[in-house]
Amino acid sequence: MSPEDVAAELRRALLAGLGEERVAELASEIDATAEQLAMVLGEPVALDDEDPDFMGPPARGA
């Protein structure tokens, strides 16, 4: 997805809950966040690259 696509998706989701005025206030922040989310969504993660405990703390411990 492009940053523009992500921004449009964020706006659609926010409009329902917050209304047009608030979405307009957030315009630049939405665009900046969309850039970052697009980078995350554009980075491939193959299924064989998966770590089953991807949410846990760093792997090593006592």
Partner: peptide, 25 residues
Amino acid sequence: AQLDIGSAVPATAYVRAQRLRRRVR
């Protein structure tokens, strides 16, 4: 502003970020 936008981020983007985080680590 962060909280408002955070409430609208797709769950798939969040989970993908967690997966990538482990790979980057």
